[in-house]
Design a protein around this nucleic acid. Structure first.
Lengths: 190, 190
DNA sequence: ATATATAACTAACAAGTGTTAGTTTTAGAC
DNA sequence: GTCTAAAACTAACACTTGTTAGTTATATAT
């Protein structure tokens, strides 16, 4: 564990509060109290409350985007790429569970520019995801299925993984990855 | 369409605002402005802002619970019950998309008693869901799979259905149900 | 020891929050 | 027309919000 700068400490702590109560219900004074200083002192380290959210959301969005990029470029067949994407989600979720927990909802509280940047990354990610699933279908790796719905379903599960991980933190990561791949990719039907 | 009482009108409109901006970021004055009256006038119809959220969340939670009850009691095999649950989610989502959209996150803004009631209903629902999935497995309707993870996955998808429905409102409901069943229950693997 | 930069503090601001009290308007019953 | 109840209004409350200004304390480099 590398020691965090005060700024990083504030941002990490804010992430856990944003996760628990939401961005709007977390006041600058709440963050300050938890970190052990006055609210105004925070402003020696950050520019605004909004900046904290912006940094959290775009950092984690960029983690996913660069992860996707390296998966796309890897010399793998589409099914293997799909498995790599499951690994990607599991790993990012375990490394930054609080920031990941903000993804589904808290982006609405970004200001105009932040929203645009964030949604652009998210849309691009979903397009890439669907394309890989489509490749799986075209190359006969999976059953014929509605690609829109299937990618929506897989991404829904992966997005909510953080809440499941919250309750089962003792699980082996490798095992979790394998179970997820089995569950999401191999499907249920006999 | 039956005409709504003013109270119901307020609550429905609040639901759409809560969905768009979140409970905390929606002020009583926002609701009043949209409905065309002064903030204080709302209090002729509602007891508090919190009461609106409470009513929305517990009504929709009860819709799911009573739906689950009737599925459990129906003379069907577990796989058929699972399919009925998919229908249940699709139908409630289409009938009250705004209230459904609040389920994943906004319950944290309920006050103590509301949280307890809500989480109790949710936990019971998830237990019942898992049991039906377990029955499917025990009676050989589905492949051997981690029940915890599988039910988590299916429920994640069903919970997020509202966001997918938001983008594809033109879709045929029966077709949507069938696609969901195919996607979630029959799985992907060849 | 002194100078300097960093990071804490106190105090205050303007704006917005949910809610209440008291009053006036509206609409329907007799 | 008059009485009554429902539902709107204005005005204000106590409190919280994010943020800034100005000041003091702390630590480091010379």
């Amino acid at each position: 564990m590398t020691k965090l700068s005060k700024r990083e400490e504030i941002i990490q702590l804010a992430a856990s509060l944003f996760r628990k109560r939401g961005y709007s219900s977390t006041s600058v004074r709440d963050i300050a109290r938890e970190i052990g200083m006055e609210a105004s002192s925070l402003y020696n380290h950050i520019r605004s409350k909004q900046e904290i959210l912006h940094e959290l959301m775009l950092n984690v969005a960029n983690s996913f985007s660069t992860g996707m990029k390296s998966v796309k470029e890897a010399p793998l067949n589409p099914l293997q790429k799909l498995e790599r994407l499951v690994s990607l989600h599991v790993n990012i979720t375990i490394n930054e569970p609080d920031a990941v927990a903000l993804i589904p909802n808290e982006w609405i509280h970004l200001e105009t520019k932040g929203i645009q940047e964030f949604l652009h990354l998210r849309d691009q990610y979903e397009r890439d995801f669907k394309q890989i699933l489509q490749d799986c279908l075209d190359e006969g790796f999976i059953k014929p299925v509605n690609i829109e719905l299937a990618s929506f379903s897989i991404l829904s599960t992966l997005r909510w993984l953080y809440s499941w991980y919250g309750k089962n933190q003792d699980i082996n990561i490798i095992a979790l990855e394998e179970e997820m791949k089995k569950c999401l990719i191999q499907g249920l039907a006999k």
